[in-house]
């Protein structure tokens, strides 16, 4: 899932200070699970911002709202009235949610309350770690199911480097060496021959380096005729 982190309170407070009517909108999906922008976090932020306004004697109105998935227009439309009624939308979803609102209501100012960070997994309560960087051409079938791009400090395709020692990474001794982990996993699976194979340079054009990516599934797209039908039902 997408893992995000709330911006420092002071930064958010400064961002919103000039605006009178502020709608703080969270999301019940990824950012709720990673405790960054769900219902509870929205309530906390609204309360904190009200206190800050009170402290500085500013008349500001804050309202907290939460939608199911802020990156989908259908859910955002549910709070359209509130958005149109605001001077500022402070999105507590990941940047996809913030940008969805911004694209739907281009006249409205939308600020992010979160820093959108990683594709990560919860390792234990309160800890999320990055396991994929979305390179667009997955290779983990050759690396024992462990991504060397996301988990190796040098994103090496042919590892380990000479700095791997006792299963730890030379860049940070607290961090596991991804290639040591790959070696151990392949050994367990009797597939160590894979580590001998040299991976050719990767084609990065499928990653963000190749520019903005848009994925299309033609069979799922609506035809003009279907679109008209849908509009008519609305």
């Amino acid at each position: 899932m997408i893992v995000a982190k709330r911006k420092p309170m002071a930064e958010i407070a400064e961002m919103v200070a000039p605006y009178k009517t502020v709608k703080v909108i969270g999301c019940r999906s990824c950012v709720a699970i990673c405790l960054a922008g769900g219902e509870k976090e929205v309530k906390m932020l609204v309360s904190a911002l009200r206190l800050k306004a009170k402290k500085e004697g500013r008349k500001q109105e804050f309202e907290g709202l939460v939608v199911e998935r802020q990156c989908e227009k259908e859910w955002v439309e549910e709070v359209e009235g509130k958005i149109l009624d605001s001077d500022l939308v402070l999105s507590m979803a990941c940047s996809l949610g913030a940008q969805t609102i911004g694209d739907m209501y281009p006249k409205k100012i939308v600020f992010p309350a979160l820093n959108t960070g990683i594709f990560g997994v919860p390792e234990e309560q309160g800890v999320w770690s990055e396991k994929c960087v979305g390179c667009g051409n997955c290779i983990i079938h050759t690396t024992g199911g462990i991504c060397p791009i996301a988990r190796c400090a040098k994103s090496m395709l042919n590892g380990p480097c000479g700095g791997s020692s006792n299963g730890k990474c030379e860049v940070n001794l607290e961090v596991d060496c991804a290639w040591y982990a790959i070696h151990e996993r392949l050994k367990l699976q009797n597939r160590l021959d894979l580590i001998e194979q040299v991976s050719p340079p990767k084609d990065w054009s499928t990653s963000h380096s190749g520019g903005r990516r848009v994925y299309v599934r033609d069979d799922a797209k609506l035809t003009q005729h279907q679109k008209k039908g849908k509009e008519a039902v609305r």
Partner: peptide, 8 residues
């Protein structure tokens, strides 16, 4: 820590 961040 939230309060401190807000200058309260």
């Amino acid at each position: 820590s939230t309060l401190a961040d807000l200058g309260i």
